[in-house]
Amino acid sequence: MSQREITYAKAINEAMSEEMRRDKEIFFMGEDIGIYGGAFGVSVGMIEEFGETRVRDTPISEAAIIGAAAGAAATGSRPIAEIQFSDFISIGIDQLGNQAAKMRYMFGGRAQVPMVVRAPIGSGTGAAAQHSQSQEAWYCHIPGLKVVTPSTPYDAKGLLKSAIRDNNPVVFLEQKLLYRKKGLVPDEEYTIPLCKGEIKREGTDLSIISWGRMVPMVLEVAEKLAKEKKCEIEVIDPRTLMPLDKQIIIDSVKKTGKAMIVHEAVLTGGYGGEIAAVIADSEAFFHLDAPIRRVGGFDVPIPYNPELERNAVPTPERIEANIRELLQ
């Protein structure tokens, strides 16, 4: 199978473009996604190919963007809505959480809302507290939504194609520090099923469950410790956080007997708590020989100063220190 190396941003662009070529009901809207190419350049070239009818620059109106996507989806379209920073979803949260997510259930199963809300999340760009959050747990707490966050270009492309084909509202959270990272994707078309995690690295001593940009960071630490012959860490990326592939986590923890969750989001109320509970509620509990450890962002807004910002969320040093402690 022939492969190419592309960036995470390009993978997302290709997923949208391929799907829009396949299905005329798909359209794409958001702020500055046309000629500008999106705040992070993800949609460069799309307006040239698909025109301004299907690649729609919107007013700065997040509630109308998300709500119009819901209304368009309920009436037969398949919209992709880009919210420029995931932090701004809060302006349209009613339309996402009270409308799009609940429509099917409220209407007794007689509606479907096939839409994707794409938005970049995470810190590391010096944009401070209102442009840097990781709020995936908010969306996971709303039944009716699916929540996906890829950690590689390969996953980004395959998962986004599945998200676009899914008949439910999907919140697709993109890691802004990964946009320029490159990875291999096949030349041939492929998709990756939602709600299915992946073992990113096999190991025997500890299971680390992580997602988004923390995955490459955890893998780097795992490789370092393996080289030092300290331990072999298994790294699980659920990829879809809601609905969660619980089995892949449980099976891994049963094998290794130790579990750690690493996420960028603030620790308290973070999705790591949910995953810890999944492990503790399962037969994996009886295989644990150490407490479940969570490593997350500190409970502070993301600060501006680069060193403060870097240390507000897990760093390789902090992850390594926690692993060493847990394995003692």
Binding site: G67, G71, A72, A74, T75, S77, P79, Q95, Q99
Partner: peptide
Amino acid sequence: PIATGAALT
């Protein structure tokens, strides 16, 4: 907004 989206379809 939902009506607006329906009109968009």
